[in-house]
Simulated assay, not measured.
Amino acid sequence: MTDRGVQLGTVQETLLIPLYGRAVENRKPEPALRDPRAEEMVEAITEAIDYDFARFDGLPSLFGSVLRTSLFDRWIRDFLVAHPDGTVVEIGTGLNTRYERTDNGRARWFELDLPDVIELRRTFFTDTARRQMIAASVTAEEWAADVAGGADGPYFFSAEAVLPYLDEPEVRHVVDLIAERFPGSLLALDTAGPGVVDTQDTHDALSKVEARIQWSCPDPAALERWRPGTRLLASHTLTTLPPELYDSLPGAYQEMLTSLAAQRLSKVEDYRLSLLRLTSRISQP
């Protein structure tokens, strides 16, 4: 996407989908989450480049992105309850406003994304003593040194709608990098199985952008075998959310998810949200 001062690469453009999802959700009388900043950013981007957000109107994936964000928010809140002075690292932060929703006033935050995204992000956010943006690829190693040198652990890494766009060797490299530099850290990520990857050309949202998912992961439990000692702490589809999150949703959303679960659509069941605890021990061939 390129126009009048705002330039984003093919994959980076996908950050506008969850941004718009949160903006749309914020307008509802009974939302799954509140995010007034998302509305402000959508309005500003629309005025700056006349981006066609309306092409995403009514798409089920908008609500799916809100549910994913809500679950990641809950995991981070739980982490900060247990570790009030911990460090949160948002990989592929995009235009997320998780800090505004979940910060406890004590934690250290790093927000990592590619340089073009950070350039756009800096038009809406500024660094503070506890919050720092890093312009780098997640596959590079320099950002890890910045995080390790800038804050003590424990660490929570959030990779929301990022890793599926890498190929598997790149994903393995990222997991190894985090595990080696930050052993014992938590990693929240989403994975897409064949039911998503093989149908993305007709996907309600992905079909409207150029980016394509590269990494197919049928079962997140496989990540435990990448590094012995790594533990899969939780793994959910959008229709099997934790009870505490499901119970907090408006009744209409609960009914929608119950109906969707009964259909057992591969596009839904093959997309998972998972939480890992990483180890520094490397598996032997």
Rank of each mutant, 00 (worst) to 15 (best):
Y155S: 00
Q12T: 12
D78Q: 13
T102R: 10
W75D: 07
M133W: 09
S61Q: 10
R264E: 15
A136Y: 02
R231G: 01
R130Y: 06
T123W: 01
D50C: 08
A107E: 13
E40L: 13
D73G: 03
G9Y: 04
G86C: 10
R227F: 05
F63Q: 11
T10H: 01
D204N: 15
A179M: 04
A148C: 02
S266T: 14
G9N: 14
F79W: 10
W226N: 05
R121D: 11
W143V: 02
R227P: 00
T199E: 15
A136C: 07
R34W: 03
E255L: 14
L177A: 03
R27N: 10
Q12L: 03
L15A: 12
Y271W: 05
F79T: 08
Y99T: 11
A261W: 03
Q7V: 15
E40R: 15
E39C: 07
N26L: 08
T191C: 15
V66M: 05
T2Y: 13
L95R: 04
E180S: 15
L163C: 04
A140T: 10
S61F: 08
L114Y: 04
D127K: 02
Y271C: 09
I134V: 14
A222H: 08
T69Y: 04
E119G: 06
P84D: 07
A140C: 09
A135T: 08
A145F: 05
E43W: 06
G105R: 04
L19F: 01
Q263W: 01
Y51S: 12
N96D: 15
L249D: 01
R74I: 02
V81G: 11
I178E: 06
G150L: 09
F156R: 00
Y165C: 06
V268A: 03
G150F: 05
A23P: 03
F110T: 11
V171G: 05
T279Y: 08
E141F: 04
A32M: 15
D57K: 13
T279C: 07
D152S: 13
L189D: 05
V89Q: 03
A252M: 10
F53G: 09
I17M: 13
F53I: 03
P36V: 02
F124P: 05
T14A: 12
S70T: 13
T97K: 01
A252I: 11
A179Q: 03
T87A: 07
G251N: 01
P218M: 09
S259T: 13
D3Y: 04
L265M: 12
H173Y: 06
R227A: 05
L257Y: 00
R37M: 11
D113H: 02
A211Y: 06
N104K: 09
I17N: 05
P285S: 12
E39H: 01
Y253K: 07
E119R: 13
E142Q: 13
P218G: 11
P183C: 09
E111K: 01
A135S: 07
G150Y: 07
E47S: 14
F182K: 00
P31C: 05
G150M: 10
V147K: 02
G94F: 03
R22S: 11
S137I: 04
W109I: 06
D3I: 06
E170M: 08
E244T: 09
G21E: 09
